[in-house]
Design a protein around this nucleic acid. Sequence first.
DNA 1: TAGATTGTTAATCGATTAACAATC
DNA 2: TAGATTGTTAATCGATTAACAATC
Lengths: 229, 229
Amino acid sequence: MILVDEGVDVGVRSSGAGVRAVPPATVARLPGYLRALGALGDEGIVTTSSDELAERAGVSSAQLRKDLSFLGSYGRRGVGYEVAHLSEQVGVVLGLATQRRVVIVGIGNLGHALANYSGFAERGFAVVGLLDADPAVVGTTVAGLVVEPADELARVVEQRDVSIGVIAAPAHAAQRVCDALVDAGVSGILTFAPRALRVPDHVDVRAVDVASELQILAFHDARRSATGA
Amino acid sequence: MILVDEGVDVGVRSSGAGVRAVPPATVARLPGYLRALGALGDEGIVTTSSDELAERAGVSSAQLRKDLSFLGSYGRRGVGYEVAHLSEQVGVVLGLATQRRVVIVGIGNLGHALANYSGFAERGFAVVGLLDADPAVVGTTVAGLVVEPADELARVVEQRDVSIGVIAAPAHAAQRVCDALVDAGVSGILTFAPRALRVPDHVDVRAVDVASELQILAFHDARRSATGA
DNA sequence: TAGATTGTTAATCGATTAACAATC
DNA sequence: TAGATTGTTAATCGATTAACAATC
């Protein structure tokens, strides 16, 4: 079985009632809503509307309301949404009530950049381990953490209760690192290596491939040139 | 008008016949097929089947055949696909026949990592400019290029025929950089800043937000914990 | 009450899957 | 010819959009 993207469609407890499935497409947009809500909060805005929030998140207000309807009923007709409250609820649905612990495997240029990225902490994640296979890198300090040997992965994941692994290793090592993360027991993997990864059904993989993103842009650029724009 | 993702659905010339629309979902998978074809080629495999290629790309063979059918008819029934030929055709559809030139704006940790990433060149892109707003960074050499001042953007884009801009600047500067790229005339933008960007209809934006990816993984992790797995 | 805005319904649209006829 | 595998069709499924009744 091969999985590259998208996990299963699972339920969310809604206050007293039953369980509601949140569609994958909706889940994928929730972080954007959370971001927009954070910005509104920072600007001191207390109440917002589906129009305003949608505008900021870059979606239509119809889609925003539809998405939020899967989570429950957190607005007031005629009034709008309370920013702080909605923000908290979306956070709960995304499982950010508990902080998730993350390891980064592969401390090259990209691993360095990720380790130093402050957005992780700001948005609910703690980077608790950096690992690398290269003895020359092991022992160095990056972003306040000492890089540990890659073969310590199982111990690090278990002892520090890590649930998400980030793969910033070279493509040829990606599947090996992935297997090690799965064996160590993480439930989610974010990979930057340009390779499809094989994982068991219970593990969720998200893949970011920068060159693929550029190729998708190239497609549109090519059409544009061809049709003379 | 706000656009964060996905461009328009545009056509591809097929050998003699008319124009066929390639659905966005298909376009988004083409880079993965190209990658898998490259790997097959590297292994010296000359002919492949939809089963084999799909397995490597991490999709179903039905989906692969459906996707390829939008591009034209490049296989032989009973036989399969010639790796080199299919690879070339997919490349043509993605507009990789012409090399695209790229600038990176924001040479912090991430910009550094991107500038040094060899995958760009390997997959059809030339990084021809690095720009930063910080005078302390301007003038330094990164990945063989001298970092130029951000306000030289228009000149760099025009003189070096740049069609794609990569935003690796801080979130608060993202919209400003985006506007400058649009004014300079790029047709596609890849942004790593956690912000929805406003662009005119004729410009295509792809957004990579690492923390959002982790939040999506957190959602699945939370369901898993809740349902006791 | 009148105006505003949500939450939901129904219609539309696009994507995926399965099955198989065409054909090498 | 018999076996294999594509390309396409039709059915299913999921996502988006628009409109509006509910209600603050």
